[in-house]
Simulated assay, not measured.
Amino acid sequence: MSRLPLDQVDAFVTAARLGNLTRAAERMNLTVSALSHRMRLLEQRLGRKLLARGPRGVDLTPDGQRLFDAIASPLATIEQALQQATVRSDTAVTLSLIPSMATAWLVPRLPAFLARHPELALNLQSSIHVVDFEREPVDLALRLGGGRWAGVQAERLFDESIAPMASPALVERLGTPAPDRLGEWPLLGDPADRWKDWFTRFGGQPPARYVAQFDDTETLHQAAVQGMGVALARWTLAEPLVRAGRLVPLTGERMPAGFGHYLVYPARSLAHPGFATVRAWLLEQAGHAPRPAATP
């Protein structure tokens, strides 16, 4: 063989690890067609089929599994060595978070941060995928969950809560419901079906059916903005819509969502001067006094 096709090997290993071509392409900043092209070239080069498409993604063929077992570990060692050898700027910090959190919570606060710290360059990676600190040059991330993740330090920023909200037009048309009559309103089904918990906690009867059912929180909120019905909205994401007058809380009550927002980072970030500044600012924005960072 001639030149070693590292770009094709990387495409194969990434797709094999994730089991999904779309996610692998996003991880590599490629289009799916470009990733597929690299895979075809590698398979043609070896004369073997390495991946097989399945109902939920891609699976390794027996030949693919043998190749993956042989090269995945050495490739990971090379990636780790390159990452450790990379010279990173003390004034550039990379933060990963989901798009909805970036839009609703972080971006509105960024102008004040940048004005206070013009010496820092804050790079945002907005993605629904959980960052892999072992493979990606990311310094810290915002995550949703219970606060326990292996290999990282997790600091709670704040807990999430939910509350029923509707558009001003719907409230003007139907009035403000009594808490125990909320089930008579047109309700929008939420991703986790938390309406049952809401009625158990605050009283009233759930409706026989929802006006519409959604599996995405942002789409649910936008449906409420358009007047389709009442959403059991996540407060952190809905607060900008409330401030803009596009959603109206129907009660002063809130219910814990059962998860929180956390700042997470690997031990290597503690040696980064810019990380300390961004971390302290995030804790400040979440209402906490900055405190010394702890080693995982």
Results as ranks from 00 to 15, higher is better:
69 D>Q: 10
292 P>K: 15
202 F>C: 05
72 A>V: 05
210 Y>F: 15
126 S>Q: 15
22 T>D: 12
174 L>W: 05
285 Q>E: 07
253 E>Y: 06
288 H>L: 13
120 L>V: 10
273 P>M: 04
164 P>Q: 14
38 R>I: 08
255 M>I: 09
181 R>V: 10
21 L>A: 14
212 A>D: 04
99 P>K: 07
83 Q>E: 09
234 R>P: 10
168 P>W: 00
156 R>L: 09
70 A>H: 04
218 E>A: 15
292 P>Y: 13
34 A>N: 07
48 R>G: 03
108 P>W: 10
89 S>Q: 11
139 D>G: 04
163 A>D: 00
67 L>A: 04
23 R>D: 14
51 L>P: 11
45 R>S: 06
16 A>Q: 03
105 W>L: 12
124 L>Q: 14
105 W>R: 08
43 E>P: 03
18 L>C: 13
282 L>G: 08
59 D>W: 01
275 F>S: 02
259 F>P: 05
78 I>N: 03
219 T>I: 14
296 P>Q: 07
293 A>D: 12
171 V>W: 01
131 V>E: 09
268 R>T: 11
200 T>F: 00
200 T>H: 04
7 D>K: 15
107 V>L: 09
15 A>D: 04
117 H>N: 00
131 V>S: 13
274 G>L: 03
117 H>Q: 06
219 T>L: 11
178 A>I: 04
161 S>G: 03
151 G>T: 11
149 W>K: 06
185 W>L: 15
248 V>L: 02
4 L>V: 14
5 P>K: 03
151 G>H: 05
270 L>K: 12
14 T>S: 10
200 T>G: 06
212 A>M: 03
75 L>G: 01
28 M>L: 15
88 R>W: 00
287 G>V: 13
98 I>K: 06
144 L>P: 01
171 V>M: 04
47 G>F: 02
16 A>Y: 04
105 W>N: 05
88 R>L: 11
45 R>E: 10
